[in-house]
Amino acid sequence: MKVVTFGEIMLRLAPEGYYRFVQAESFGATYGGGEANVAVSLANFGIDASFVTKLPKHDIGQSAVNSLRRYGVDVSKISRGGDRVGIYFLEKGASQRPSKVIYDRAGSAIATAQPSDFNWDDIFEGVDWFHFTGITPAISDSAAAICLEACKAAKRHNVTVSCDLNYRKNLWSREKAGQVMGGLMEYVNVCISNEEDASDVFGIKAANTDITGGKISHEGYKEVAKKLADTFHFDKVAITLRGSISASDNNWAAMLYDGSDYYFSKNYLIRIVDRVGGGDSFGGGLIYSLLNSYAPQDAIEFAVAASCLKHSIEGDFNQVSVDEVNKLAKGDGSGRVQR
Rank of each mutant, 00 (worst) to 15 (best):
N170R: 13
M10A: 01
G278A: 13
V101T: 10
V4D: 05
L165F: 11
S246R: 04
D332S: 09
S312V: 12
R12T: 12
N250C: 11
K227T: 14
F130E: 02
L241H: 02
V190C: 06
C163D: 04
G283H: 11
A24L: 08
K205D: 13
G279S: 05
R271K: 15
K266A: 09
A225E: 08
F130P: 02
S26E: 12
A43E: 07
I9T: 07
H157L: 07
C147S: 10
K226N: 13
I87S: 08
Y294Q: 03
L290S: 05
A306Y: 03
A49Q: 03
V159Y: 04
I192A: 06
A329Q: 10
K77H: 12
G126F: 00
G46M: 06
I270V: 14
R156H: 05
G182C: 06
I192Q: 04
I300N: 01
E324M: 14
S307E: 06
S63K: 12
D104Y: 06
R97A: 09
K266I: 05
E149Y: 02
N318Q: 14
A138T: 02
V4W: 03
I287G: 02
S293C: 08
V3K: 00
S26Y: 10
I216G: 00
H311P: 08
V40I: 14
P56R: 04
T212S: 14
R70N: 07
A177C: 14
D200Y: 06
